[in-house]
Design a protein around this nucleic acid. Sequence first.
DNA 1: TCTTGACTTAGAGTTAGCTCTAGATAGTAT
DNA 2: ATACTATCTAGAGCTAACTCTAAGTCAAGA
Lengths: 164, 164
Amino acid sequence: MVNVVKSDKSKGFSIGEVVKQTGLSAHTLRYYEKEGLLPFVTKNSSGLRVYTTTDLQWLSMIECLKDSGLQIKEIRQYIEWFRQGDSTLQQRLDLFANRRKVLEAEMARLQVVMNKITFKETLYTTAIKLGSLEAADNDKAIQRLKKKLFDSPDDFDKRIQEAG
Amino acid sequence: MVNVVKSDKSKGFSIGEVVKQTGLSAHTLRYYEKEGLLPFVTKNSSGLRVYTTTDLQWLSMIECLKDSGLQIKEIRQYIEWFRQGDSTLQQRLDLFANRRKVLEAEMARLQVVMNKITFKETLYTTAIKLGSLEAADNDKAIQRLKKKLFDSPDDFDKRIQEAG
DNA sequence: TCTTGACTTAGAGTTAGCTCTAGATAGTAT
DNA sequence: ATACTATCTAGAGCTAACTCTAAGTCAAGA
């Protein structure tokens, strides 16, 4: 009934099997390959792609690098460095060190946004309780919270309060 | 020498002044307006935009919502709710509550990525010290660290190790 | 043999969020 | 008067990362 492309597990996986394992679409897998992210994928005598366990490991690494905010072309650069061997260890270390710094900055940024959003959540909860946004804005507890959260010397909000 | 458009501070700011204050480009400010994010901006008798302090407050709010991951059309929706008054308090509260959940998930995700990147940084530091990536991979301390970080039951990396 | 379904390719289309261009106007400086 | 600068509009162009289309190949099942 079901027509499954068998790709002889000892030799690797078909693109359909990789789709199931990774959740990526076949389109995306071919796109990644065209962009140089999967330089190890081979084809069988019929022209079908055969993915090895190493290719799946690379897809996992690509996912990690993407999640860290790297662009496709930067991931390709990393893979090229990998293929060049130990002479590029320093470049790759630099890339990871830079990623860590970017991630740290991003997490700090998100924490600032989180504080603002949480304040708004409190503000609107109070507004619903009191019946209007204006009443909540004039609420003493809300004003104290706002002062506590945003009246630090270098916060932009000290000068320009957010609307809404 | 310098030709500054004077927009009578008591009545507001020119687009050039807003560019300086916000760091956004004039193109972007007009684009936001076209997309419905600045429905309060008026024009003077010459057809030039005049921004008020309220508009600057909205730009600050827009920045916050964008930073929280909201799309432009979702921000427009929020602004429409705001203009509709207290009858939409619940929708706005829901939006903020949802934002907080999304931000929490995003921060958790970033922490996972951070662990992986930090491991890679340690791995490559060791590789440079030992002279090759293979030597670092075989290093006992590295293997212990890898086991400690990634051998939890539901980590994908338990089954598919990352390459590179 | 015919059909089905998974695969192949080259290349076009999509989306978000800008970013820029061209040509016009209005006010200021020399 | 002339030049300069800031602004205006409509609409085209750009980038990243997909996402899809059309037309074709290939192997297995009824």
